[in-house]
Design a binder for these strands. Structure first.
Lengths: 339, 339
DNA sequence: GTCCATCGTACATAGTGTGTC
DNA sequence: GGACACACTATGTACGATGGA
């Protein structure tokens, strides 16, 4: 099948290709009748702008990119990115934008990907997630001038629109939930320390502890993995005065820890309450079922897409807030054991 | 940042842009010294071919696409597509190809996406999965002339290279596993009936039953969802002569069914054995842990990417076989109850 | 007259500023 | 002044032509 060009349309209608271009782009310069004839013929021929030609001509790829930098194992169990992609696509496709996806094993390759995409003009902008403590990406993206949106940061970022997440909010309700049940010694199993929101949650928790006499929180690293979650849990429970409740920075660690604890004969929630960030089917099927903080990633991703499109179009975009996480209480949290 | 073009390089070196193009593409037509100087200058300037210009010039987008047509809920629990994407990317990025991703809610939109991609020349080829019983995609892709590879079909396909999956193989070992444990009445909870491999598995199972006196299999539809899996299980167990073992077409249904059965007081595996297609963390954490058939999607996706690249380059590609599924025995399958 | 290095230019397609009737 | 055409832009590729050895 031969794909029609505006020249084919021009020949068919008997006008110049400039007229066709004006008509197809809804610009002045053609009479209403000519415009209609052109549009009819274009529709009949099934014309679609060649994306390469259009990109070359107006320096727009009509495409945005996202780079996933997580281990294949993480991606396998984390539903996060799939939901992200669905949310992005819902908005992007409406605006005729495509989504480019890359997967890289490390930050160096991620940076190289941004450079390559930009140098090749493959994308008009990128969406970045998982801000790190010492993150080279904002500087690179600013240097390149690549329009970018950061997903899920605590603070605004100079020159880069962000979707802010309010960790105060969730952490407070987590602590309220647990202290309401009588817990005073709380464990916290954290994600990778290089992630900014791992640090952020620790800070927020520590602040709350300082403001709440009689409350104690101990942090342990869990790295988001099953083994990490189990190891951190063992360390917490081996302390002289072990916590009666543990908060996990993601569902994978929490679920693995619950399975492990049950095998060790630890009764949940009678002896130990467990609460997870990120809800998923895992939380529902494990026994006891996990109380968890769900969030609406699909919706947030759609917001991110709108911000990115606006940034690409106008050069600026306002920050936005992620939708709040919502506590889904199940059977893994209950009153603290007495004593 | 101004991005350099071959004209900038030509000016800098003092040659024509044709010479630069030849040098950068490793073609004959320039002397070794000139080539080296050009390459040096290009590297110093950080030149990268503008993908739009290159695509326009040689009618190659250096990009392939994949359309996901599953409900957002499915995508959330199914790790399949993330693994797919990682596997594809590993191979594509080495060859300088990008991956375009689209998510659509139904087949009509999926077809429209192929049409649009092709009309806009956004991709050089596409990868398709989940062949349906009456599938309009092969015909459309043939009509458009879009190079395409189908992932996971039982039969070869006229004009379209496929990654074949041998259902005989898995189904046989599933049945061997269960009959070896003494099971004679086996239930089968199926995926959506419109998927070709749902039908295929039913056919293969029925053939094996015909060849095995004393063996009986009953099929029920489960639609790949938690609720579907639970409902189908209830229907199977409500029959006068219920199965002693059930095979599920995916892990989500199997896990949901196990959770439900345990709640009803059905002892697994003493009273009922459960076996799942597709392994995942869900199978590992549910209790009892699920025996499942794992497969190496990342590796298979890499194969698919290689086939697609070859198809795009040469116009032909040989069919290949998916890697075999491997039984991961856990505690959900055991000897059939006596009587 | 052959061969190689190199250049000029047409081409892929869409968009747009300027000129003409 | 409205409706249109022409010529040029964007960048990289590739064919045919030209010059020198």
């Amino acid at each position: 099948m031969k794909r029609p060009t505006i020249i084919d349309i021009a020949r068919e209608v008997g006008v110049s290709k400039a007229a066709v271009s004006y008509a197809l782009n809804g610009r002045a310069g053609v009479s209403a009748q000519t415009r209609d004839r052109i549009l009819d013929v274009a529709a009949a021929m099934g014309w679609r702008a060649n994306s390469a030609a259009r990109a070359l001509s107006n320096d727009r790829a009509a495409s945005v990119g996202i780079v996933l930098t997580r281990s294949p194992e993480d991606l396998r169990t984390e539903p996060f990115f799939m939901q992200m992609v669905t949310g992005l696509e819902q908005t992007l496709s409406v605006h005729g934008f495509s989504l480019q996806l890359a997967w890289t094993a490390d930050t160096a390759t991620e940076l190289a990907t941004y450079r390559r995409w930009w140098a090749e003009r493959r994308v008009d902008g990128v969406l970045a997630t998982d801000l790190r403590v010492s993150d080279p990406r904002p500087a690179l993206l600013r240097e390149l001038g690549t329009p970018a949106v950061f997903f899920g940061t605590a603070e605004p970022m100079a020159g880069i629109p962000v979707l802010r997440v309010d960790e105060n909010d969730v952490v407070s309700s987590a602590i309220e939930h647990l202290t309401g049940l009588g817990h005073r010694r709380i464990g916290h199993v954290q994600g990778p320390p290089e992630l900014r929101h791992t640090v952020r949650r620790e800070e927020v928790l520590n602040r709350i502890v300082r403001e709440s006499p009689g409350l104690a929180v101990s942090h342990e690293r869990g790295e988001y993995t099953e083994e990490g979650g189990v190891r951190a849990t063992r360390r917490l429970l081996a302390t002289p005065n072990p916590p009666t409740a543990i908060i996990y920075d993601n569902d994978v660690m929490a679920v693995a820890a619950v399975v492990h604890a049950v095998e060790l004969g630890i009764r949940i929630p009678e002896e130990l309450s467990v609460l997870a960030w990120d809800d998923s089917m895992l939380c529902r099927v494990v026994r006891p079922a996990l109380s968890a903080f769900a969030h609406d990633i699909v919706n947030d991703a759609a917001t991110a897409a709108r911000m990115l499109l606006e940034l690409v179009e106008t050069g600026v975009a306002d920050d936005a807030e992620l939708t709040r996480r919502r506590l889904v209480p199940r059977t893994s949290t209950a009153a603290a054991p007495v004593g």
